[in-house]
Design a protein around this nucleic acid. Structure first.
Length: 576
RNA sequence: GGGCACGUAGCUUAGCUCGGACCAAAGCGUCGGACUUCUAAUCCGAAUAUCGUGGGUUCGAAUCCCACCGUGCUCGCCA
């Protein structure tokens, strides 16, 4: 509806401008304020005024007269309001909005295959809140692109060949269970991270000879990986797979699921990294300084080292091979990454271009880390709030809320223990996700328990509640009739239809901008429109055509809300 | 110090990419109202803003440009 409406407006307006002898490169199409009936408007008359030698309202009138609506389906009428040219929707526009169900917001396939890489946290220990934006934003970006008609794969790139993993492997093989503190939680990555922390502590505080011996062992692990030594792969792989297994379980609680975990060692073993290194060396930008191969990239503040003086590759070297593999297999590649990786990402893209790749197909979504009031979270140092703890606490608090509301609850549907548990989980985890996904990712967040777990505010339960209300009405309404849009005469019903019709446009724009927070903003607009309708238009007590149409509208609203929540990864409760 | 990002009511944010009906929109908090009626995790109303500061471009700037201030990130043969 909205997208077709917009296309119709563009077409008829461009024609009208041509007919009047004005340039049609700038249509000035915008969304009018709420109080207008128009779905779209144009402010182009402002800019044509001086050329036309007439005041903007007069130009607007001339254009409105020239607009030909004989072929349009969704645009019903055109009118001027001062300097603005307003386009109002037809009955078909509202009727189509009333008819949306499960498919609400899903755009036609555009046939692009897209890989969304997100999270990709090093397998060093429990997922902490500092990085929690990554899986939450990443999952939403992937969902969004899917709704926008792309064929999406979700990848987690596993850094299993870096120095960190070599340190971890050495620590795991060196220290004994008895040297370690009790694990914070009964899951494998909490068990394993104790080796990593103890190992790092040792490297920082042990005497020089002991550290040298340890470093020699770490170095031999890195060399083993570089040489493709099977035994080394196996040793490192054991640690990586164990820790990653636990992290997957944590992420599954959000839930964030992946189609593939791509290990960087894959691009070492198959020779791609060596191939990249050879090609990099032959570039004009390649320099050999201080025994290390580097790239002197234009416009970057530091050289990109791609081969250490000991001959081993670096993260970015392997990532180059990784991205060429993505380009071979997908039309587009989107990466969600923290702002601290921005410089590296810029160098990666530049270098991929030098290697002959079309870098237009690579896009990033940058987010800033969640910090504690006292500073950064770190797995190594053990400073940080574990995502598991945040989710646990969210569920506990949500459960308290559910229980405290049981006494005053109007609806007599007798919630069972299983329902209480379900609602607590949906609301608790939903609130955490919504809080994160509803903000622009570039804004810094300082973690505070009270704020992260605020169920008031502009929060998940507010929009989830609308879905639950819809489900409650539909449960009692029986079969959902098609409904006649002419029976929906109240402005609140019309406004709700407009919001529903707009959903596809919101998805289109949010997907183009890779900004899932626009969907979160939309859920609030939709919720407000529904609540106004709910207040003014009784559904079950209405009769005949009116009741049928209102039931259909509730069904359309319910599915639209469900899909909007689906995109941002927040569950849609059938009751609350 | 260089580069990048962010700065909007007391607090948390939307609007900024694409300037226009914006003398700026929400939530929390404050104050006052609405449940014998489809779930009150709801709704209605009141008060609260030099849109960081200064300049510029424009018929028009929260939105674009420049400078400055503040905060964060970054400037490793780490990732």
């Amino acid at each position: 509806m909205f997208i077709a409406f917009r296309e119709e407006v563009s077409a008829v307006l461009a024609d009208a401008l041509d007919d009047c002898g004005y340039p049609s490169d700038d249509l000035g199409i915008e969304v009018p304020p709420e109080e207008f009936d128009a779905v779209l408007a144009s402010s182009v008359a402002f800019r044509l005024a001086s050329e036309a030698g007439a005041p903007p309202p007069q130009v607007a009138g001339e254009l409105a007269d020239a607009v030909d609506l004989s072929e349009t389906i969704y645009v019903d009428s055109v009118a001027t309001q001062g300097p603005y040219v307003n386009f109002t929707p037809s009955k078909t526009y509202f009727a189509d909005a009333l008819a949306v169900r499960e498919e609400s917001g899903r755009l036609d396939s555009i046939g692009d295959s897209v890989v969304v890489e997100h999270t990709s946290a090093n397998p060093t220990g429990p997922v902490h809140v500092g990085r929690a934006r990554n899986p939450i934003v990443g999952d939403a970006v992937a969902n969004l692109l899917e709704y926008a008609g792309n064929d999406v794969d979700r990848h987690y790139y596993v850094n299993d060949a870096g120095r960190q993993m070599a340190v971890f492997t050495w620590a795991y093989e060196t220290f004994d269970e008895s040297d370690l503190p009790e694990p914070e939680r009964d899951r494998i990555e909490y068990d394993m991270v104790r080796y990593y922390r103890t190992g790092n502590e040792f490297l920082e505080s042990a005497d020089e000879t002991a550290v040298e011996a340890a470093e020699a062992e770490i170095e031999s692990i890195l060399q083993g990986l570089e040489a493709g030594d099977d035994d080394t792969y196996e040793r490192v792989g054991e640690v990586v797979d164990a820790v990653l297994g636990g992290m997957k379980e944590c992420l599954a609680r959000l839930p964030a699921a992946f189609d593939e975990f791509v290990k960087e060692t894959r691009f070492m073993k198959n020779g791609d990294t060596d191939d990249v290194v050879a090609r990099l060396k032959s570039l004009d930008e390649a320099v050999y300084e201080e025994d290390a191969w580097q790239l002197d990239l234009d416009g970057f503040e530091k050289n990109l080292v791609f081969l250490r003086s000991d001959g081993t590759s670096l993260y970015t070297t392997r990532d180059l091979a990784h991205h060429e593999w993505k380009f071979d297999n997908y039309d587009r590649a989107v990466t969600v990454l923290g702002e601290d990786h921005k410089l590296q990402a810029g160098q990666l893209k530049e270098t991929l271009g030098l290697l002959g790749n079309d870098t237009d197909q690579l896009e990033s979504v940058i987010y800033s880390y969640v910090n504690l009031p006292e500073g950064k979270m770190s797995t190594r140092a053990g400073t940080g709030i574990d995502l598991d703890d945040l989710l646990d606490e969210a569920i506990v608090r949500a459960r308290d809320e559910v229980e405290s509301r049981l006494d005053t609850r109007d609806r007599d549907d007798d919630l069972e223990e299983a329902d209480i548990e379900r609602i607590a989980r949906q609301v608790g985890i939903g609130a955490v996700r919504y809080d994160i996904v509803s903000k622009q990712p570039t804004k810094a967040i300082t973690f505070e328990w009270e704020r992260a777990l605020d169920f008031e505010a502009q929060s998940a339960p507010y929009v989830q509640y609308v879905h639950a209300r819809c489900c409650g009405i539909l449960d009692d309404a029986g079969e959902v009739p098609d409904g006649d849009v002419d029976a929906l005469t109240e402005p609140e019903a019309r406004d709700l239809l407009r919001e529903i019709a707009r959903f596809e446009g919101v998805i289109d724009e949010a997907a183009t901008d890779l900004q899932p927070h626009q969907i979160a903003t939309y859920t609030r607009d939709l919720a407000e429109a529904f609540n106004a309708f709910y207040r003014e238009c009784p559904v079950l007590s209405a009769e005949g055509e009116v009741r049928d149409a209102r039931v259909a509208l509730v069904a359309a609203a319910r599915h639209t809300m469900a899909n909007a929540l689906d995109i941002i990864g927040v569950e849609a409760p059938v009751s609350m």
